[in-house]
Design a protein around this nucleic acid. Structure first.
Lengths: 207, 207, 207, 207
DNA sequence: ACATACGGGACAGCCCGTTACT
DNA sequence: AGTAACGGGCTGTCCCGTATGT
């Protein structure tokens, strides 16, 4: 009845949960949702099936958690924070592109934008996923709009035009990332960064 | 010369093959590759497992054929031909966007760009898929570069810049399409069409 | 300590595993490896596909386990123990033949030697199987050699000759069993038993 | 309507049939009946499915034909003829063993006795196979009995004893071959040949 | 909290045989 | 005689999820 002291098992629910989310996020990005089986996750996390299902009763719930707790923050870190805190929109966008490109060179492979990867694979068939994905996109778009609307030197834009511009920036990035992923080289992203920068400059959105 | 009356089966290999490719292309686009089972295909095509296996021994071989025989031509029809035959690049791009947006309104749903869908799902994990997908992207990029380099009024561009511009156009389109798919509304595409048009105009690439 | 009453499932991994091995050994012997489908096994064992897969992820792993955990012991019981513990080699061999022949009359059919059956079907195409099968044969041969070398009255034999004699005994048995199986009658075995006995006697190996 | 002269198809039914039987015999021996699919046969023979099924409507009919038209003759050539035409039984048996062992060294692998291989795999489950296999065994046994009963110097044997002796010879051979196959080395056969020779000599059956 | 055993159903691919066709 | 299209059913394996056990 007494607790075994020699046992090797150390209960650490929060840590385990975090580990599961980490490896899941990585595998989902690398192989996609459907190509990643629960067994893959179990092996990669070195956790038992029971523990995994204890924390995430279904695969879907896990993916949802990955979306909100890992991919969301990733987008925040990679895009939202730079854009929000940079001295201007142009600098923020440049910084976002720059660190993502640096990451690709570091890893030596292009895994694509985790949000886009899941979005393309899951958005169509499941409402919950779509809502969850849309939330991240919305937040992303919002901060862009915020900064666009706050630019002093720029042309005054209606709110529809602001949204269009924000979508444009996101589109260029994610489209270029797709191209980069398909071709496994960073150039489309590098080029896109430059062209977006000049596009912003021409519209005085970078000051 | 007379048709046998007793026979109930009619051999039509080319027709059956085409039917299989058609429904496969549709289902792959709608649900994705991994979410489409061979049984789904069998039921949708109303073909027997044996016949399907005769024409496409593996799911992969089927997807490869879909890629080269359906999705390639689709991209050609939607993008390459318009760009090639329009009176200028701007008109071609506009036409491409226009007919795609029209198609979305017709169907009432955004299934995304079939090439991008498969690219994102398959490119990373299989070399054959990636090569196949890259071929289509290359052709697409080539025709854009061709027209960019042929523009008279525009700024003289180095070949790297031409490629960057071509990639930019593709990126904007596919990124906007992803956004449209994730949000199930056409506006990102509509906006992107306008912004690309003005971008081309500013660079005198539309004449 | 009290048994839950509500539960309907009773976990008994060892028992289930044993049941699977038992029925598999029986079906493999009766129908052969390739003619026994996993579904046959599932039905005969009345186990679910999932449980079977849990204990034996592949058919090969199951066969390997059958080989080492059922067929090996069977050979041990039928041949190795009698030979080892009989008062002399002749008696041991006679006992082995005797009980096997008795078993045939009991069952009313000749299913053949389980080791030989699998050996013939699988040895050639898979290294793991061959190694596994060879191990059993080696053990079998070893005990025969042991007793041959220990016979006092007999002619002194070199170790090569001892091995040859051991192989000879095994060969006569398994060859006769094959003949018995092909003709579905025990006579070849009965005759072989007699001829082996006199062969041993002539060489003074039975004392 | 005129026969094409340029056509590459050369109708040669007998030749094709023979080719099919040859490759089938080889593959059945190497991989066994169940492990050899019709497709394997088709590819190895370089024949179309239709042609194969034209000559042999079912796989079973093909195996039966292989048994009577290839394996039967093989046994005849390897055992029956040597035994029948040698100057005595001992010489015949020695010659049979000798050429089979030579064949193994030539090929560098032990595929086993084709008759025994199929016998073990098929005898139990199909009457037609069993009858067919038994016929070959009977012929084999008959010629041995014939020569046993014709030996002058030997002990007079009753017909039951003659059959037992014949079965013994066959058993030793096929058992040794099994052992050789399982261990992929010829020694069991070489040893068996010697021991059978001395066994025959002791019983004056070799003169 | 975690671990193991288990439930069922679905998956892609392969099987042998037949039918239409040349 | 020979070819290719096609019919269905079956194979081994894997899937995600749940129940039992500690």
């Amino acid at each position: 009845m007494r607790r075994k002291i020699t046992g090797k098992r150390r209960n650490d629910p929060a840590g385990l949960r975090a580990r599961i989310l980490d490896t899941s996020a990585a595998l989902f990005q690398k192989n996609g949702y459907h190509s990643t089986s629960m067994l893959d996750l179990i092996e990669a996390t070195r956790v038992t099936s029971g523990a995994l299902h204890h924390h995430f009763p279904t695969k879907k719930s896990l993916a949802l958690a990955v979306l909100t707790e890992r991919i969301g923050p990733t987008v925040r870190e990679a895009w939202i924070d730079p854009v929000r805190h940079a001295r201007d929109l142009g600098a923020g966008v440049a910084q976002a592109f720059g660190s993502i490109i640096a990451g690709i060179h570091e890893r030596g492979a292009v895994f694509g934008c985790p949000l886009n990867n899941l979005a393309l694979e899951l958005a169509l068939n499941d409402v919950d996923f779509r809502r969850c994905i849309d939330d991240v996109f919305s937040e992303w778009r919002s901060v862009l709009i915020e900064r666009i609307s706050a630019t002093r030197g720029g042309v005054r834009l209606g709110s529809a035009e602001q949204e269009a511009a924000a979508n444009f920036i996101i589109s260029v990035y994610s489209g270029a990332m797709n191209l980069a992923k398909a071709g496994q080289r960073a150039t489309p992203l590098v080029d896109a960064a430059k062209l977006v920068a000049s596009w912003l400059h021409e519209r005085r959105l970078d000051s």
